[in-house]
Design a binder for these strands. Sequence first.
DNA 1: GTATTAGTTCCATAGTTTTGGAAATAGTTA
DNA 2: TAACTATTTCCAAAACTATGGAACTAATAC
Lengths: 96, 96
Amino acid sequence: MRSEFEKQAVKVFKALGDPNRYLIVTTLVERGELSCADFDDRIDLSKPAMSHHYRILENAGIIDVRKKGLHYYMKANMAVLERFVPGFAHTHLKKK
Amino acid sequence: MRSEFEKQAVKVFKALGDPNRYLIVTTLVERGELSCADFDDRIDLSKPAMSHHYRILENAGIIDVRKKGLHYYMKANMAVLERFVPGFAHTHLKKK
DNA sequence: GTATTAGTTCCATAGTTTTGGAAATAGTTA
DNA sequence: TAACTATTTCCAAAACTATGGAACTAATAC
């Protein structure tokens, strides 16, 4: 009980269990790599709040963040996502 | 955005994103129908706390609760679980 | 170097979640 | 009916989470 797998599984579920984060992740899966600014017109939250959500997702291993110049680029980590929620992309994207 | 599917998906993820509830669900998937008392020696929480967690899981549609005599019996709702987390049983059970 | 831009960190606050004790409810048994 | 059992509901407290304003940091451009 309480293996590393289980601990991360709970983290992943908790990370996805917030409407804003769920939207961030599905958007990234759908559109590939995006910068913070790309979310400005998609999610109406302050920068600090967005930053907080990115960190939770990164911490759960669901997204990878890299900095290039002034921008931070986020992309979904499909390997992690699929390890804990197999078929995530197929199941949770708009196209249904 | 914010379809019924998405709303329930977030609810399901939130419900699974708590260590006690994750344990309740994996235990139910593994062992079938159980009563509250069957969790006494598996999860060290008060009855009110357990009751609260059952309700959240039931509310997310992940478990079904029925009363028979003095006991409440819980079982995992595999259809819902598999709809939002395909392969849950295969991915999240101890046998790995 | 100064200004600008993109995003973070720090801090405080409002809201939500988890939890247990006590009281209530409902079904069983005597 | 009274006593007993299993679990819930009610309530309050502690812990955690989400959020935004202000101040900060890093990269670029002039």
